[in-house]
Write a protein that binds this DNA or RNA. Structure first.
Lengths: 182, 182
DNA sequence: TTTTTATGATATAGTGTGTCTCATAATATA
DNA sequence: TATATTATGAGACACACTATATCATAAAAA
């Protein structure tokens, strides 16, 4: 499919917008391809000329955000600040909600970011707690916190959530992992 | 359906075992009712004489474990010890894996246990971090840790996981929530 | 042994997926 | 602008799964 063709861009854009809207309304699993094409006002068969199945469309929609998001979640030391992370989530809140609603992509996000964090932790002295567990804990807890925030209609500002994130997750874990170096 | 009838007990038990086995093999969502009845060697139509749908069977299978599990997850202060929690998970690891594999029941577990934990936290002095956030953090992180342990074939003994749970989650969070009372 | 009832087998209607074909309209290109 | 290209819409189709209904039979309770 030639993305320079205006029709192709229009079709894929309509399908993407419909998937996001429907997923926010009733959850990813409950959305059917028929509904997507009806909402997008696109022929049913046309869907399969662009994507293998529903997951194919989802992957395409979230490709960019998934990469950026993983970058923000790795290195939970000094590289990324909490407020930065939560401002990003706020700006992309619809797409991030769709992302976290998908079991498969959520797990992919966690395992990729965990691997990065393990590398980061291995640079520093060890602790009683296995690095793989601490890394998974930090990443999974971060996603849980973001998920809670989005599912509760973002009741606190992004700056405050960023500070809470740093205290409750980053500092709390680092305090246990890297206790007084001498 | 009369549970005193031997045939009823046999049918429901076969369906339950088949659901657990198939879910562990390929994930809950991928399991069809046809597969369940074939694996259980039960007529397809018979399934619906006992359960409305797949979720109905799942609910029945996990009813007891869900209740016990919620009790173990609430009150993360002194009532439940980490080793006790992880020994329980170990003894019921197959059913717990099925439980955590279901989006719906996982969320129900988190929100119920979170509510209990909020009550517990409200007995003590406040902190900069909202109680609802801290409670959700503790519960969600506990489940993430358990999930990691089960999905990695329980590489560490339950006792050690219990200690890690207390350090990484309970103590770390309480240390931030209830900093020196004087 | 007799009565009750859960089960198996089968048919059926409804819904969603994924593929295919053909006429048409939108687009790119010369 | 004219022409060739190609994405689209509409419809038919095979397939899989859900959910319900019926009836003879086997298993259980009484």
């Amino acid at each position: 499919m030639d993305m320079r063709d205006r029709r192709v861009r229009r079709t894929q854009h309509s399908l993407a917008k419909a998937l996001i809207a429907l997923t926010l309304e009733k959850g990813y699993d409950a959305v059917t391809i028929r509904e997507i094409t009806e909402r997008a006002d696109i022929g049913y068969a046309t869907f399969f000329r662009h994507y293998r199945d529903k997951d194919g469309l989802l992957k395409d929609v979230l490709d960019v955000v998934l990469t950026e998001f993983i970058d923000l979640l790795r290195n939970p030391d000094a590289t990324t600040t909490g407020p930065l992370l939560f401002r990003y989530v706020e700006q992309n809140h619809e797409v991030v909600r769709v992302l976290l609603n998908s079991n498969h992509l959520r797990q992919q996000l966690i395992s990729t970011a965990t691997q990065s964090t393990i590398q980061e932790y291995n640079k520093y002295p060890q602790s009683k707690i296995p690095v793989e567990i601490a890394a998974h804990h930090v990443v999974a807890a971060s996603i849980s916190l973001i998920d809670w925030w989005l599912e509760h209609q973002m009741p606190y500002p992004a700056e405050q959530m960023g500070i809470i994130y740093e205290e409750l997750i980053v500092n709390a874990t680092n305090g246990i992992m890297f206790q007084q170096p001498e």
